[in-house]
Amino acid sequence: MKNIAFFDTKPYDRIWFDRLKDKYGFEFKYFESKLNSDTAVMCAGLDGVVAFVNDVIDEKTISILSDQDIRILALRCAGYNNVDFKAAYGKIHVVRVPAYSPHAVAEHAMALLLTLNRKIHRAYIRTRDFNFSINGLTGFDLFGKTMGVVGTGKIGRVFVDICKGFGMKVIAYDPFPAKDSGIEYVELEELFRRSDIISLHAPLTKETYHIINQDSIALMKDGVIIINTSRGALIDSEALLEAIKNGKIGGAGLDVYEEESDIFFEDYSNAIIQDDVLARLISMPNVVVTSHQAFLTDEALKNIAETTLENLRQFFDGEDLTNEICYQCAKYGSCEKQGKGRCF
């Protein structure tokens, strides 16, 4: 039986992993702490590592894992911008869950939009105090509005379909347009100019880092709404805050935040948040922040567990690593896998 270190563990993580681990012949050693260069030493004597989106898998962490004969690191998420693939190449195979439930994330994006537009969060607080006034709760019809979708992978395309169901006009930007999708693709600047609402569904790369910034915001319509369920650093948070303060941006629904790694998934209800930008964003009546929960459905958790365990099984059984990603993948966008369908 293989023993696997499991980092950044929460109760909801364990449910499906515990149900399925015997089927795959694994035993998990759960750690609540995040994986980083300080905690990597806890993997001594184990056979592999399961990590999450906010773990710090840098050169030092990888070196410590490699020195302890760890040869497989399974990300139980789709994103991988927290991994130093150059340091991992040739030492540790890195696998991920490329898709767990595009519907879960796309539906949460729409939930954020509906909440912002119809002031559900404010109405909920009022009625809890038996205040049934509807002053200040006016929204607008989504029907006929232009939705700009940045990124049309699986999640983005599901979100496009949801928007069309509301009768919205959808335009999209993606450097790799989906073939035969029926989606109207435009250049990014045109999307910024035409959209009433912009929803981000792109990975975090050098090209997409701070894709929403002071200059791009200046191109947008006054009162535009921004939705981000992808990666926090797609948005320059300070530029977003300033645009909300001056009214250029009419609202923001954020499930991610660029400096979230030490905050999200934890309980700080009895502490003072030291991140002034996040604290001010949360204080705004036209901002809704959720704590990276867009993926959090039972179906998604099951798919994450099944794919992660299958990734581990493939590695230990010497099979092709279907969901491996490496330095070549990250650098060039493709990888000619070598022996037995592995990156090295």
Rank of each mutant, 00 (worst) to 15 (best):
P177S: 05
Q274M: 13
E299R: 15
E189R: 08
K221S: 07
E258P: 13
M284F: 14
E242F: 08
R280N: 14
G223R: 02
S181R: 08
V277P: 10
E310V: 00
S230L: 03
F264N: 02
L278C: 03
A279S: 14
A305K: 00
L241T: 02
V289L: 03
T229H: 09
Y257D: 02
S181D: 04
I249W: 00
K179N: 06
I235M: 12
N246Q: 13
Y257M: 01
H210Y: 13
G223P: 03
G250T: 00
L312W: 05
S269K: 15
A202R: 02
P285V: 05
E189N: 14
L200E: 05
V186K: 15
V256G: 10
E258T: 11
K245D: 00
D267Q: 07
A218N: 12
S261Y: 13
E184H: 11
M220V: 06
Y268R: 08
L281H: 07
A305G: 03
I272V: 15
I282C: 07
K179Y: 03
F176Y: 15
L188F: 00
G247K: 03
D262V: 11
S291K: 06
P285T: 02
I249A: 01
S269Y: 14
D236M: 11
E260T: 13
P285E: 02
L296Q: 07
I304K: 08
E259Q: 13
L188T: 06
E266F: 12
I273V: 15
R280G: 11
H210M: 11
V277N: 05
T208M: 07
E258S: 15
E187K: 13
A202D: 09
Y185M: 13
D275G: 05
E299Q: 15
L281I: 14
D222M: 06
I227F: 09
Y209W: 12
L296I: 04
E207R: 13
S195M: 07
V277D: 11
V277L: 04
I225E: 06
S199R: 08
A271F: 12
L191E: 03
I198K: 02
R193G: 10
K206E: 09
I212Y: 01
P175C: 10
D262S: 13
K206R: 15
I197R: 00
E266N: 09
A233E: 12
S237Q: 15
T308E: 06
D180M: 10
E184Q: 14
E310L: 04
K221C: 01
I235H: 08
A294P: 04
Q214V: 10
E207I: 13
I244K: 03
A243S: 15
F176L: 14
I183G: 01
I249F: 04
Y185S: 14
V287C: 07
I304A: 02
I197E: 03
Q293G: 03
L278K: 00
A243R: 00
T297W: 05
F264R: 07
Y268Q: 06
Q274E: 15
I272H: 04
P177L: 11
